[in-house]
Nucleic acid binder design. Structure first.
Lengths: 194, 194
DNA sequence: TGGTACACGTACCACCTGGTACATGAAGGA
DNA sequence: TCCTTCATGTACCAGGTGGTACGTGTACCA
């Protein structure tokens, strides 16, 4: 029987897990099915079998990276006061590979490459939305919450790019601390637009 | 005569310019020599002839992008008060392609791909260094200047990633304005670390 | 006029690419 | 026991890959 829709299975899950692990180390964009297959101990035939095509594999890996990203969002402490704790979590060396892969897929998606459809839609909004809601709960007006959430996301991603390039945990953390100190404003300071 | 070192020439410059232009639209990482050659009206043979190899072409394109990046740094107004003017320059739609290509190369370099050697070294330090010097001139202490320069770079790149993904010029600009407002501190506020 | 360096095209090479055809063997249900 | 489904391997395919061999026209210079 021809598989029209690629179903899930234990074997597929195992391969996907291994493929993501390999993507974390080596990237995904410019690797061939054979390179990936050899690295994770299978044949390129099996990747086609379980994921339908190369693009199907890329889609599956991208979704898995998105899923882990959301998971990280869900479990990380989200209160404003915990910003520094969130940053400390991000700089953990065990997350470097995942962050690097995230930026690789991000750049790939910016060029409109196949397999990344929908990635950009969630890349910003998926983070801004919950943080904004939290800030509104904390009593910040809507415009201010939107801007602050977006700014916080930008600071985090910008400093992660810095960290990935330089490896300078201490320096980027000092910059992050500076940001949190800037946020520690005299009460009543208006965060909204003009 | 066999060209051991690929020399510069008018023909090479013309091809490089066209190749960069094409990279701005289509990226560079996963394009073949033939695709690039066809798009810019030459043969893949000529790209090999003038750049030695595919990697040589990538190196040349990456260097050209770096050069333009430095040029932008050199000509942009750099005083702290001009931060907003710099941002307005960055969001100009004509720069989107260049920024996208910058992030593509950045991600490529993070994976240690050939042709990007040295890119990361300058990606952060090349911007932080002059800005830090400027801030020190403006009377900010050394530690504070380092952190502020790094934070400013992170905000800029993080919001550019947002802008490239969402196309939301107004929203990212509001977030940037929020950042500059946070910087507008009561005089004497200490920017240095604890 | 002859020589030389450059710029370029055509044809080719071995190798790699994603994808397919087909066989096989194991597991499990009737 | 037979039949089906799943998982897998081997062999193959057409087409694309970076790179090379070789020839050629042109411009300049002695």
């Amino acid at each position: 029987m021809v598989r029209l829709v690629v179903a899930s299975s234990q074997a597929r899950d195992r391969l996907l897990h291994a493929a993501v692990q390999h993507a974390l180390d080596q990237g995904i964009v410019d690797l061939s099915l054979r390179e990936i297959a050899a690295a994770i101990g299978t044949s390129h035939r099996m990747l086609i079998y379980h994921f339908g095509s190369r693009e199907g594999l890329v889609v599956a890996v991208v979704r898995e990276v998105e899923r882990r990203e959301r998971e990280r969002l869900g479990t990380a402490p989200l209160s404003v006061a915990d910003a520094r704790r969130r940053w400390d979590h991000l700089v953990d060396p065990s997350l470097r590979a995942q962050e690097r892969l995230f930026f690789e897929i991000y750049a790939h998606a910016l060029l409109g490459r196949p397999g990344t459809e929908g990635f950009l839609d969630e890349a910003v909004e998926g983070w801004v939305s919950p943080v904004r809601a939290l800030l509104i709960d904390a009593g910040i007006d809507e415009d201010g919450a939107e801007g602050l959430a977006r700014l916080g996301l930008a600071v985090t991603r910008g400093l992660l790019l810095d960290l990935l390039a330089t490896g300078d945990t201490a320096g980027t953390t000092r910059a992050f601390d500076l940001f949190t100190r800037l946020l520690d404003l005299p009460s009543g300071h208006d965060l909204g637009h003009e």
